[in-house]
Design a protein around this nucleic acid. Sequence first.
RNA 1: GCUGAUGUAGCUCAGUGGUAGAGCACUUCCUUGGUAAGGAAGAGGUCGUCGGUUCAAUCCCGAUCAUCAGCUCCA
Length: 637
Amino acid sequence: MNITFPDGNVRQFEAGITGLEIAKSISEGLARNALGVIVNGIAYDVSRPIIEDASLRIITWNDDEGKEIFWHSTAHLMAEALESLYPGVKFGIGPPIEAGFYYDIDLPEGTKISSEDLPKIEEKMRELVKANNEYKRIEIDWDNAVAYFKEKGDEYKLELLDGLKDSEITFYTQGNFTDLCRGTHVPSTGFIKFPKLLSVAGAYWRGDSSRKQLTRIYGIAFPKKDLLEEFLKQREEAEKRDHKKLGRELKLFMINPMVGGGLPVWLPNGTTVRRTLEAFLRDEQKKRGYQEVITPHLGNLELYKTSGHYPYYAESQYPPMKIEEEEYLLKPMNCPHHHQVYSSEPRSYKDLPVRLAEFGTVYRYEQSGELSGLSRVRGFTQDDAHIYCMQDQLKDEIKNVIELTQKVFTTFGMEVTTRLSFRDDNTEKYGGDIELWERAQKEIKEVADEMELSYFIGEGEAAFYGPKIDFIVRDAIGRKWQLGTVQVDYVMPERFQLEYTGADNQKHRPVIIHRAPFGSMERFMSILIEHYAGNFPFWLAPVQVSVLPITDALNGVASDLAEKLKSLNYRVHFDGRSEKVQRKIAESEQKKIPYCLIIGKREAENGQVALRKHGEGDKGAMAIEDVLEMFAGESKV
RNA sequence: GCUGAUGUAGCUCAGUGGUAGAGCACUUCCUUGGUAAGGAAGAGGUCGUCGGUUCAAUCCCGAUCAUCAGCUCCA
């Protein structure tokens, strides 16, 4: 039979040959590292015979599929360890995930696993790794599969089997453990050299909160020690960057139970950063023809009934309050207010597009367990805007918005990929006219192509009222965040009966674009803190420069300089304490202030300062006017 | 909301069934020092909250609240 390799090469093998043997025919090293093979797009164990012509790709750790196989096998390995340590444990599902794997288990009555138990389980796993048991694939018919798990008393596997009546059933066995599993697996447990269990958490069976909560154990594994170490180091780095920790250390914000959970309070430092971000965006918006509005934090319930958000989203809103026979809602979104601004005067096609922007604070009820720092809160400010335009302006407006969004993310040094979120065939899910939808989707795609965006299409990811463009950014340590969305809306103009008078002197409905590059100031701030690890660039830093005289005798000269910088609108910290300069420097560094200007006798005599850059150290003496020039340059975004 | 872990000084964290400790921060004094922490003294706690067990609870038990890790939800 013919086997076609990814490079197009075709070679002849005898039918029934295994992936491993094919790998061996290429090189011993490849055979040693082969975790699986993709045969005609389907993952096979390396030991599984290949019986007909196929295209074939050999999978190693370096492939995403290889990691999946590796981690999936580790999940089975952990399951075996658990079964030997906790007899009677039942198993839910145990899939590989983006980084590692988990297994959901149901422990026998009275048994609990906490993070202290993980080393013990890991130890057992390492034992099983040494045993180097083979992962064996067993094809089995449905009745026998059911019989096996009935005997074992595992109702979870039985429920899974219920859904597999018409499919081919396979088991995988290694050592003393057998699991219902589609595969694929590494050849033997010996491959899983460095397993590591990470955490324990509760998880509902099949993600359904009305069903039993199982114990979920997260873990990961690597074929090499340095990969594990690197992974652990990265986790530590992420922990160090945790915005909740840095937020406290740098006095950016606080969460205070007396104020209320999920209601962050912005401290002076954090407020400075936020206002700077707002000023940056406001400026960019001004360049792009936006007008700013301000709307109240409460809105008449009628507004939200009209928009359809109430009672549809009642569960995530605060209950309405009655004021003089009228009901009011704490504003869960800004759009309805903006629609009222739009319709506050008759609009002509000559007025369009109308672009209304607001840093609008909204309140949404989040379950208490969901609250976290600045990322999940109950009150937050959206950098919201609504663009009202004619259908044939849509393309240009989308382009305008994408440009703005890209400007924002590149400014922060974040790599962006774009998802075009379109509708799927399920017409029930969506509102508005299907022809307009299709036109909008086509235009969005055209814009994306014209702008040479790197994008992919997410079918079925659209909002109910229109297609979206979502921006997924990658931060400094490679984590992905979905930020900034652009949404086309055909439903709200109908609901609010928005109109403009066309050139034909007829009334028409405008199209609305919702957009928020940052999304929420709170969440964006949390991401930004972690992205920069608290080391804000000069233009954003809460304090930009500290002025440090070496002795008290120079306090006068130094404070004059500090005052001068302040008068030029820089954010300056003057440290005139009777402390050694080493200490002043240490504290300035700890506060992550971008620059220290150190003034000793020599500098004072020459109109210079000794410059020190955060994280880089001493830069030597520099004339004050040169420093000012440098600061001016770095202030530009 | 659910499961688990945690809750001791402003922060980070020790500790004990017999009225609580360190480092940093803070206050005062001394020190005037050239690129990441000079010295001394002082002040600071209802040991998250409420109940129970006990002669005695910060410690044991229960409830509750908050935080964290997940799960569920998210215009």
